[in-house]
């Protein structure tokens, strides 16, 4: 095993982590401020990817597609909030789970209606095509590095937004006491819609960015959604810092587990068996880690 390969896998893990952060940040923000569990967050991710693929293929520009993905996901999020989600804030979690599960069915089947069952493809923009060389002699896709950079920029931007701006102050106030900030004359309904649209836009951005790496298809949001749940459960629901650390942790553990476990087991087991056991174990690894963390810290690492 060479260092280059190891670095490549570490970067892959980081890229997955950063992408999960974009999803988890929105989920955790929505839960923190509105106390709502949103299963349909994966659908917003899918909407972002589809919007980007469609606009990019119509105009030929990935960047216009990216803007479209942000706009489409934010708009879908805002509409969803106004039409459905708003009625769920006072309901118990069971109702929220069911209503957003219903939204998944509607969005998934709806987009299958519009776009068909065949996947769409999205090309990496020319500027970001190609690879950079890594220390140790390996090559790494420039685009994946760009995703990592975008993720870090978003994390920083989100930190500044929440800690330094008036909107951020209102979001924090909403997290600690919603009746109080409503009493202070702040339009809490609009605030909720903005927070929801912001979370949706981040999910849409994640979908568009990943859409260029994988194919864009119905149901692409669901595996990511569940990973994002694992992330926010590990990090502590409602905590953006927890979401960032949880996302990086999950990204690295998942990628490195798939890479290292079969190799490690090959030292003690015959090769074919090691591959099988290692592969099965690696796919369960993050859930095992999550169970361990929750067994000791039932409210996650950075409980709000």
């Amino acid at each position: 095993m060479s260092t280059a390969l190891l670095i490549e896998q570490l970067l892959n893990g980081l890229q997955l982590g950063v992408m999960l952060f974009l999803m988890a940040a929105g989920l955790t923000l929505i839960f923190g401020v509105m106390g709502l569990i949103n299963l349909a967050h994966g659908s917003l991710y899918m909407i972002g990817a589809f919007a980007c693929a469609v606009v990019a293929s119509l105009t030929g520009s990935f960047w216009l597609g990216l803007i479209a993905s942000l706009a489409a996901a934010a708009a879908a999020g805002a509409i969803m909030e106004v039409v459905v989600i708003r009625r769920l804030y006072d309901r118990d979690h069971l109702d929220q789970v069911l209503a957003t599960f219903a939204l998944i069915l509607i969005f998934s089947e709806g987009s299958r209606w519009v776009f068909g069952s065949f996947p769409l493809y999205l090309d990496i923009p020319p500027v970001l095509q190609g690879a950079v060389s890594l220390p140790g002699g390996g090559q790494y896709q420039l685009y994946r590095l760009a995703i990592i950079a975008v993720g870090i920029a978003v994390a920083l931007g989100l930190y500044l937004l929440i800690s330094r701006t008036r909107l951020g102050m209102r979001i924090r106030a909403g997290e600690s006491d919603r009746e109080m900030i409503a009493a202070l004359g702040i339009d809490i309904q609009t605030l909720y819609t903005i927070v929801f649209a912001l979370g949706a836009a981040l999910a849409g951005l994640a979908g568009a960015l990943v859409g260029a790496l994988q194919s864009v298809q119905v149901g692409m949001g669901e595996p990511v959604l569940i990973l994002a749940f694992v992330v926010i459960v590990i990090g502590g629901i409602g905590s953006i810092k927890g979401a960032l650390i949880g996302a990086i942790l999950v990204g690295l553990i998942d990628t490195m587990g798939r890479f290292l476990l079969p190799k490690t087991l090959a030292l003690i087991l015959p090769a074919a068996q090691a591959g099988m056991v290692g592969g099965a174990l690696a796919s369960m690894l993050i859930y095992i880690v999550m169970a361990l963390i929750l067994a000791f810290r039932p409210r996650g690492l950075f409980a709000a």
Binding site: F229, V233, M276, M284, A291, A295
Partner: peptide
């Protein structure tokens, strides 16, 4: 393990355990 938590945590941790078994089943040939 799951019952040490409650509310949303319980929902998500039971979901995660089920996913764990699901992934085990599809990756165990």
């Amino acid at each position: 393990i799951s019952l040490r938590t409650s509310g949303v945590y319980f929902i998500m941790i039971t979901l995660a355990f089920a996913q764990m078994i699901y992934y085990f089943a599809i990756s165990w040939p």
